[in-house]
């Protein structure tokens, strides 16, 4: 019965090691931030994979929901725990930030989930290319709304999140961002795994493979679509919240269609419908971006070129629609991930 806890054990060890290294400052700030962006990217790609891979819809406005999450959790955090020139003194004692921080991030996720309704509701009637256009529209609606809200900085952006993190570190000195990015990344992958492996969540795959048969075979397709879109965009919102607190600054420009495309690239790189593929490709993509950084502006010539090469020689992505355990069946003997 050891294998029941292998995954937990590995994750706790890994989390512990990273936290320790960060705490002792054995790894530099740069490496640390790459690791944190890796976490954010994993959340982005796995959550988009739920819609594009598992449900077979084509969402290309994922960054819009990330933006909602980023702004809501930033505003909430600053409003509650730090002195700000717009909001004035903090509503709560900054000492409480340490307890409420995860809730602030989750609140951003919930707000993004509701923004997901922008896509979920039209999906009852449309699908495929037409829904893809709606997702782009949703992305633009969100960004433009925020750009026009001058109260929160408009297109100049919004900052002050570092103060919240500092307030947390003042109470107990730990690399809080590293810890929370790690926790939320693990929670995301776990939640998605649980969702797609349940009979309830298998309705998503049924919709992808034959929507008519799904509806007639008692699957409430509208409900499943709503929940799936809300879950996917909610997780993107959590990624956005973490992203905002890592950088300490958000502006609507960083959540434009390019950011959505990045998420799309990660999903297709990993293989449609493969959770482990989405995780691997997010890691790979983040590392690749950093390795190619010396190329500066040419980076964006080389990376798309790599994509073209990949699509030529391995159009199904790294993993296809298989999971790690399908490729290495022996692994199943060592772990159980549910």
């Amino acid at each position: 019965m050891f294998r029941k806890y292998t995954v937990q054990l590995i994750l706790v060890t890994l989390g512990g090691i990273i936290t320790y290294l960060a705490y002792e400052e054995l790894i530099g700030l740069y490496t640390l931030s790459v690791l944190m962006f890796m976490g954010v990217n994993i959340i982005m790609s796995t959550s988009l994979n739920l819609v594009n891979g598992n449900m077979g819809e084509f969402s290309c406005g994922h960054a819009g929901f990330m933006c909602v999450g980023a702004y809501v959790s930033s505003l909430l955090g600053v409003l509650l725990f730090s002195k700000d020139k717009i909001f004035g003194p903090p509503l709560l004692n900054p000492d409480l930030a340490i307890y409420f921080f995860p809730l602030v991030i989750i609140a951003g996720g919930i707000a993004a989930a509701f923004a997901g309704l922008l896509v979920a509701l039209p999906s009852y009637k449309t699908r495929g290319d037409y829904l893809a256009i709606i997702t782009i529209a949703a992305n633009y609606i969100i960004i433009s709304s925020i750009e026009n809200l001058n109260v929160i900085g408009g297109s100049r952006g919004f900052m002050g999140m570092k103060k919240v993190i500092n307030a947390m570190e003042d109470i107990i000195y730990l690399p809080w961002m590293v810890i929370w990015v790690f926790v939320f990344t693990v929670a995301t992958v776990w939640a998605l795994r649980r969702y797609t492996s349940s009979t309830f969540g298998k309705g998503v795959a049924a919709i992808c493979q034959d929507e008519v048969a799904a509806e007639i075979m008692s699957v409430n397709t509208n409900k499943i679509k709503t929940i799936t879109f809300m879950l996917s965009s909610g997780l993107a919102g959590i990624a956005g919240g973490l992203f905002a607190y890592i950088i300490g600054y958000v502006n609507p420009g960083s959540f434009n269609i390019l950011k959505s495309t990045e998420a799309l690239v990660m999903v297709y790189l990993g293989g449609m419908g493969s959770l482990s593929g989405a995780v691997l490709s997010a890691i790979l993509f983040t590392v690749l971006l950093e390795l190619l950084r010396p190329l500066q502006i040419i980076k964006w010539v080389v990376i798309p070129l790599l994509l073209i090469v990949l699509m030529q020689f391995r159009p199904e992505g790294i993993m296809g629609n298989r999971e790690l355990s399908d490729i290495f069946p022996r692994l199943k003997r060592f772990y159980k991930f549910k």
Binding site: A205, A206, Q209, D210, M217, S218, V219, N321
Partner: peptide, 16 residues
Amino acid sequence: LWNQMSVLDNIRVAQH
């Protein structure tokens, strides 16, 4: 049938 899921899963999903 849902062709990308197992025979067993085809029956399971029908229990929605």
